[in-house]
Amino acid sequence: MNLNYKMVADVLVNFIKEETEKTGFANLVVGLSGGIDSALSAVLATKAIGRDKLFAFALPYKTSSKESLDDAKLLADKFGINLQVIEITPYVDPFLETLNLDNKLRMGNVMARMRMVTLFDMSSKYRALVLGTSNKTELLLGYGTWYGDLASAINPIGDLYKTQVWELSKYLGIPEKLINKKPTADLWLGQTDEDELGFSYTEVDRLLYHMIDERLSKSELINLGFSEQFIMNVAERVRKNQFKRQLPIIAKISNRTIDRDFRYSRDWGY
């Protein structure tokens, strides 16, 4: 799982530059949560297109921790990232009140989607693409909000496991404070990813790497020391969340159905 981070950084910076500019866009917008994934995406983007073309937004809700915002600012200061803070509370609260919403999961999804709405609106204002910040671990586990934080135009870090995100971040000089803190979606007070998932990123990344990248069988995984229950739990999460990694499925009628037998690359003509 250890990578040549110099080469990986080179590939990702070039990816962001090309996939942004060839579509005729010059700018990118990104939400900076204070966490390491968005920090890494943003830093790669500054290297790709220059800091003046990246518009970063911290989008706190009233229950978001102050530490998250401080960390976003710490990163922005260090890398000269243009950071604007937009408090989402004034437009999230009326929504929650109107629908009498007090379920934690639903509230969390609403916040993630309000941030998405904000970022896509900003992308229109700045003639920019929305930069993705989901890593391979959370994409495989489906640990993200569909059409919320999972929504983006291009994603530089979606093929890096969380532990690889940490390593690449170290290589790029992102402040240790952001790398070492406990990962959190910060949707409610005291939430951490690892508590909610029930396992650590280090453990699950090792399992996913052997299961997905190396295609090992269940018995081979057990031989490596993973418990059967852990293997089955993770395999089931990966299966159940396949829908989040795809476009909506379309009922087939014609001979040329979009994405089935109407097949074009997104970079068609660029």
């Binding site: 590939v11 070039n14 990816f15 090309e18 996939e19 291009i154 690359s265 997104r266 970079d267």
Partner: peptide
């Protein structure tokens, strides 16, 4: 060289 749909 170049990138097509994320492939370098």
């Amino acid at each position: 060289v170049g990138v097509e749909d994320g492939v370098t």
